[in-house]
Amino acid sequence: MSFQVRKLLLVIVVLHVSACSSLGVKPWERNLLAKKQMALTSSPINAALDDHIYFSKEASSGGRGFAGGGCGCN
């Protein structure tokens, strides 16, 4: 499974590098993307609180950011 996922990831990265030149917007077309609610992590504080809860209560961590540690809660 992990090998397949790695392969998939590689494909995604290669696709990005090769196809990204046809994607995207011009600098003056960023009015919607510049809104706070369009930031990938629109509330870093909420993300930190959620990460702490789920790190404490579930066996998985990381993904959006480092898998980390930081507390003795797990």
Partner: peptide
């Protein structure tokens, strides 16, 4: 004690005026 090494690789891609995407791979060795 324990030692933690984390690696994170990411690609963020704007698709169009309305659509933005992100893909990450993270690895952690504890």
């Amino acid at each position: 004690s324990k030692q933690i090494v984390d690696l994170l690789f990411g690609v963020t891609q704007v698709i169009n005026r309305r659509f933005i995407t992100q893909f990450n791979y993270s690895y952690s060795n504890v």
